[in-house]
């Protein structure tokens, strides 16, 4: 198959192919192979074909339950990010007449601002002596600081929603933009009120964008280990924390690799489902229009 191609192709393509093979494909393959290894008393890897790590993952509540819990929290983050994104995207797409580009630029700006800065901001806002608590005390709303704010699952969810909302906003806005105004007008002409128009016309047409955005938020939260570290409390444990633990503090690489492979399969599954759904809805749309 490659034989027909001209030498110039190889010249252009070879560096890329080699780089990807060495630094991307082989590393992932290594994780896969490593997940079947065992370790000795001192944590040194022993080549083997053992399913122990997978067995442990699926039989120990610690691992599979944490995975489920992470799913749950990621789903919450995704849902809130979607709920928060839709009105703003709608406003910019349909209501804002002037400064549209400026507004759009403003919603993608946070994407460019350091992740760590955004996580950190919540730390100083939610802390016991933090800005929110001292503000509430200042205006006399509370007498003593609320201590449950920072270092809790709630703080992690708030932080993640904040960090990942722009990822959701962008595709939703783009799909709103692509809806022909004539369709919306037609719906109104046919007597539908704005609610009906929104739920029956605008929302279905923007489903591909909503799916893309939701997938981003879900997958990104699933793999985040920093926000739980920085904002989480004694109860916070995400699957990526255990995963990171296995390579750092626990030093159990086979189990870590097995967790990695499970996570990888889950993420690929989610991505595949989402791209299928997206295609289905966009083709539905193109049939209708």
């Amino acid at each position: 198959m490659f034989l027909k191609l001209k030498p110039s192709f190889y010249l252009l393509f070879l560096p890329l192919a080699l780089w990807m093979l060495l630094f991307l494909v082989l590393p992932y393959t290594r994780v896969f192979i490593q997940s079947f290894y065992t370790i000795d008393d001192f944590g040194v890897l022993q080549p083997a074909l053992s399913f122990d790590s997978y067995k442990r993952f699926f039989t120990k509540e610690l691992y599979y339950f944490t995975l489920f819990k992470t799913f749950g929290l990621s789903a919450v983050v995704t849902a809130i990010a979607l709920i928060v994104s839709i009105p703003l995207a709608y406003y910019i797409a349909f209501k804002a007449t002037k400064n549209k580009t400026l507004l759009y630029t403003l919603i993608i700006l946070p994407l460019w601002v350091s992740y760590i800065v955004r996580a950190y901001a919540w730390k100083i806002i939610l802390g016991e002596e933090g800005i929110l608590n001292s503000f509430l005390q200042f205006i006399g709303f509370i007498d003593s600081p609320i201590s449950a704010l920072l270092y809790s699952d709630l703080a992690v969810v708030i932080g993640m929603v904040h960090i990942y909302t722009p990822f959701v906003l962008m595709p939703i806005y783009t799909s709103f933009e692509q809806i022909p105004t004539s369709l919306v007008e037609a719906s109104k002409d046919l007597g539908a009120n704005r609610f009906i128009t929104f739920f029956k016309v605008v929302l279905p047409l923007s489903l591909p964008g909503i799916i893309t955005g939701g997938t981003f938020a879900f997958v990104l939260s699933l793999g985040d280990f920093l926000a739980p570290n920085l904002l989480g409390g004694s109860n916070t444990l995400f699957i990526s924390n255990i995963f990171q633990n296995m390579f750092g503090t626990s030093n159990d690489k086979p189990l870590g690799s097995a967790i990695g492979i499970v996570l990888l399969v889950v993420v690929l599954f989610v991505l595949d489902m989402s791209s299928r759904a997206e295609k289905r809805y966009s083709s539905l749309n193109s049939d209708r229009t």
């Binding site: 990807m20 630094f23 991307l24 494909v25 082989l26 590393p27 992932y28 393959t29 290594r30 994780v31 490593q34 997958v219 990104l220 699933l222 793999g223 985040d224 280990f225 990526s240 995963f243 990171q244 390579f247 690489k253 870590g256 690799s257 990695g260 996570l263 990888l264 993420v267 991505l271």
Partner: peptide, 21 residues
């Protein structure tokens, strides 16, 4: 393949590289 490092959680790529490099 080239979409993977952009869409997959960075922690996966990071650990894969740590294991192989």
């Amino acid at each position: 393949i080239v979409l993977l490092p952009i869409t997959l959680p960075g922690i996966l790529t990071g650990i894969a590289m740590l294991s192989f490099f």
